[in-house]
Design a protein around this nucleic acid. Sequence first.
DNA 1: CCAAAAGTGTTTTAATTACACCCATGC
DNA 2: GCATGGGTGTAATTAAAACACTTTTGG
Lengths: 250, 250
Amino acid sequence: MSPYDPSAFPPFAVTVDLVVLTVRRHALCALAVRRGEPPFQGRWALPGGFVREDEDLAAAAARELLEETGLCVHDPAAAAFASENGAHIEQLASYGDPKRDPRMRVVSVAHLALAPDLPAPRAGGDANSARWAPVETFLEQGAEQTGPLAFDHAQILADGVERARSKIEYSSLATAFCPPEFTVGELRRVYEAVWGVALDPRNFHRKVTGTPGFLVPTGGTTTRQGGRPAQLFRAGGATLLNPPMLRPEV
Amino acid sequence: MSPYDPSAFPPFAVTVDLVVLTVRRHALCALAVRRGEPPFQGRWALPGGFVREDEDLAAAAARELLEETGLCVHDPAAAAFASENGAHIEQLASYGDPKRDPRMRVVSVAHLALAPDLPAPRAGGDANSARWAPVETFLEQGAEQTGPLAFDHAQILADGVERARSKIEYSSLATAFCPPEFTVGELRRVYEAVWGVALDPRNFHRKVTGTPGFLVPTGGTTTRQGGRPAQLFRAGGATLLNPPMLRPEV
DNA sequence: CCAAAAGTGTTTTAATTACACCCATGC
DNA sequence: GCATGGGTGTAATTAAAACACTTTTGG
């Protein structure tokens, strides 16, 4: 590193972009916002914005998440997450291709947020400017309905989806897609939606209830899914699952 | 995002820092360089430097790696990696605390590089300015001998070590610590050094040779470890190991 | 009663562990 | 010969997959 000299390094803008995922109607969905100005005006993009002068990267991501969705960030340090509208958030990766933004040199630090299905679709903006859609809508050739995402956001989204898919295997992250209290069946449907596979309900039940620290029974039951009443659980303290959940091949 | 206005966002410097790991004398070692100027003058730090005007993040990391170690980056796309001094490199995470550099606002995109034990300790600098040392030397309280690393580099190093330890479980990344041709025993000693455990040589042998695509026999043998001649292997094309290597618990 | 989802038990199958044992070299 | 690491065989343990079956609700 050369001595301090402001002219010795090029200036960058630093942004955070958010891959916000949820499970709705048995599909893994991502949040997109419509761009109101150039470049890519009118196209769908991931929510995001500039990091402020005295703001940490994580703080910037949490602020953008709150502004765009009203979701608070679950602090793993905070004992119990009382907030109903809480989300998990973690850093994903950084994207800094010199040409990724035609205006100037921008490095974006992408973050991944996982949230339960929101009762209200969105706050703070009109329905035309923000939407949830299945991730396939923005990836693959499915972009016919929406057009491709702005900038390199399709790549960022793909990386975020891949991270979510692999991380629920060996961590308790799938519970971040569930409301504070949930049933084993609801948790199973999360895995099925994220992985796009069918899982055996019997074996799944045994596996998750038998993994120490994964699920904590609340004592309550619910019949909101129909059928026999199901026990309600909260997420336990365990963050690493051993043995992991096994993702069936193809 | 607000309309384009250069005064609307604060300027950042963007750097890359490298966690370069290798296995030497049965220990996981990291590369550190001595800082020649303030801040933290004289302290050990991770190698790194500013990202240039028209340079991708990955290109900046590869350039720094080459400058500091003479190592080239193995391109996974390139069919066979012929280069003797090749390393694996991947993005690790970004660090952007507003106070992490006392001079100015700097966001560092850390990268993780894994390299085989180098015949020559280092090129291009004197022995006092760059060194390999076991990672514990820089972490924990072991920093007595070297003093703590500059900036937040102890955290970055810890994150890189953790990434390496977990990633060799389910990927073929451990071969990046080996020379182009290596024996099963040498690969096992890599796992033992990185995890700090002892593995059963018989079961390890069966496991790695039985995992399709992990190892490709070259036909040659060597007795460089003493004892019965051992078959030589190259890394196979498989990047994901299924089933994974199991890291014994404590 | 019937449909639907929850939950338990059992059998089959595969993978991991632990360890006995043999092989091929250098000294 | 004998120490040293390389490599194979095998039995015991453990976990996963497949699936028959019972339970408890709503309509």
